[in-house]
Amino acid sequence: MLNKTLNISTSPHIVKGIGTDDIMQNVVWALLPTAIFAVYSFGLSALMVLIATTAACVLTEHYLCKFSGKESTISDWSAVITGLLLGLTLPPNFPVWMAFIGGVIAIALGKFIFGGLGYNVFNPALVGRAVLQAAFPVAITTWYPAFLDNRFSSFSVSTFTAPFMEPTVDAITGATPLSAFKFDHVVTPAYDLALGLITGSTGETCAVLILLGGIYLIARNMMNWRIPVAILVTVYVLSGILHWVDGQAYPPPLFMLFSGGLMLGALFMATDMVASPITPLGVVIYGFIIGLLVVVIRIWGGLPEGVMYAILLANAISPHIDNLIRPRVYGTTKSVKGS
């Protein structure tokens, strides 16, 4: 970024000192309230999951850089964000060793293999989560109730499972609002969802705090506001139409908006600067595709939650979106040949 040579340019001469590290650092601040609420509602087990994923991401990034003979890039905070985001998408009682493996995979397969920060095709945290979901489908769908009395004095039984061993299933498990709807048709009130008085992944329960973090970043112009707005509006409108057509079979739109990982995904994962399109219109199309996929997977798919797959799929096509709506070069009739 820094250029030591003398630059001669026309006015204005104000240089905004905003670099990658600044943005990343601010994202971490924006995520902190959500992380703190996660620890508050789920206790020490959630804290262990967050520590494990963050440590795994930072260590993997550091050692992979060293191994390939490059300078360590952990000081740009991006690995911390990946770790935090991954931890926030996991169940609070997730075994620590699995969370650690998820962190290693997120950085190694999601980011480093593509060339590090700025080259990742997919959001690294979601790559880690997707692999964990495929590898340990039972552990990642075993949920732990929030606000247990002993949450600050004891860990969940499965937290400290010996590495590579099967976790003991907790006697006390809960159902997420989404799976409760999918399998038993129970709609949780939107009020509980927004405030996070529910069971779910560590960081996806309190929609209000996630929104606050997002608004902070948008206000500081560090996040493309079009992406979350496009996603949330699409989900609200589509599920609103479905609910209006058949109120019994389809959940109310506010329930769709505040449940599951939609808030966290829309604000912090879909907005990954590298894996999302760059043009304003492209970004809106990208958000619409994510919203559409979320509704389709949640309502007609076999899984209760689909935000992760929706974002990963949209990540995969985001360069093509940009290509598709690329403006025509002035004076040419069709697309430019040979470009």
Binding site: A134, F136, P137, A139, T161, A162, F164, M165, E166
Partner: peptide, 13 residues
């Protein structure tokens, strides 16, 4: 491995 080994189901898929 011992009986309690956690299978990585993704590996067989």
């Amino acid at each position: 491995f011992p009986d309690t080994f956690q299978e990585w189901i993704v590996m067989i898929l």
